[in-house]
Design a protein around this nucleic acid. Sequence first.
DNA 1: CGCGTAATTGAAAAGTATCAACACTGGTGG
DNA 2: CCACCAGTGTTGATACTTTTCAATTACGCG
Lengths: 188, 188
Amino acid sequence: MIRVNKAFLEYIVKLKSQDSTHTIIEQEAPKGEKIITQRTVVFHVSIVKEGLAKCYLTEDTGNDFIQEFFGAGEVFGELEMFTEELSFCTIEALTPVTYYKIPKKAFLALIQNDAKFNALVLKLMASKIRYTALRHSYNQSHSLEANLKRLLNEFPDLLHEIPKNDIANYLGITTRSLNRALKARNEF
Amino acid sequence: MIRVNKAFLEYIVKLKSQDSTHTIIEQEAPKGEKIITQRTVVFHVSIVKEGLAKCYLTEDTGNDFIQEFFGAGEVFGELEMFTEELSFCTIEALTPVTYYKIPKKAFLALIQNDAKFNALVLKLMASKIRYTALRHSYNQSHSLEANLKRLLNEFPDLLHEIPKNDIANYLGITTRSLNRALKARNEF
DNA sequence: CGCGTAATTGAAAAGTATCAACACTGGTGG
DNA sequence: CCACCAGTGTTGATACTTTTCAATTACGCG
């Protein structure tokens, strides 16, 4: 759901403090801004410093599929550095977002020359794979009721932080169904 | 669906040919064998040399969620080397499978000392993330009919290679629904 | 042949989407 | 201060899709 990566954020902050050439820059995105747009070239790897963003894919049907919500320390744009393909998703700020940007060249240099950085990236990608597999598996084999229960258990004030439409897209259902499920919950 | 990774397989074959200490070993799994079992400790990274395996998660509901089907060159067990957690999925041979095994220690040494190997692993994980995101997104926002059409388009003789129950689990539906959809297709 | 596994099918029940109408909120401008 | 607007949230009725359950049938193999 809302993913964070404290260890990585700390490492980036440390790198930036030692970065005399100002390769790593800090940037702000107001609420609603698309930091990365689907099917465009990606030039930087980004790390959320503060705020909340959604990572989603828009299908030809017009539906949005929300992959994850990114909080502090989450990284995006890194896949495209390795696959050499266009961005496969859009990253959009749900709240004002502050983030760090590392240019492609500098990122790849870090991968090559900084073993600890390399290890962190490997771990971060491994976690992404693991986490999404577990989530999709759970989602697919449990009822909407169970999925919702789990979600609200883990993030009690989710409904105040994220629009319902986005929550519905995350769960792969319509807002109507989400509302029905929520109402049923309140009537236990 | 059926994933392959020719580049990685070739690199492993090359490594093995230079491997005087026999760290990389070749192994066989008969049809039906579980090469890795969910929630157990993983000691090796494996690469499919030949054959077909399914990668799936079993939920407490008893349902299986099929993550992917692995063909030649696909790698498994690598995530656990980085996350230090138990296996999150089961790998089971659908046909007799021949595969290479690299012990954890040797794998991590390669990551550290062999830049090309490291790059291949980074790329492989990036591809896994990208591919699964695209697939789940497509699956979620298209009808069963469209999903099936796409699948059979890409893998025309899927129905002969993989049991229907597994295909249904891959699509996240029951066998009953799969059969109905298949019948409807034949009646165009 | 006989056994177990996989595949097929119908009917009823359950779950979700679709559509359309309406309510609530915060901000804007007359 | 109020009317208006856009965006977000809520709800009911209906149609559609998928699951569930149970009963058969087909197939591969010792």
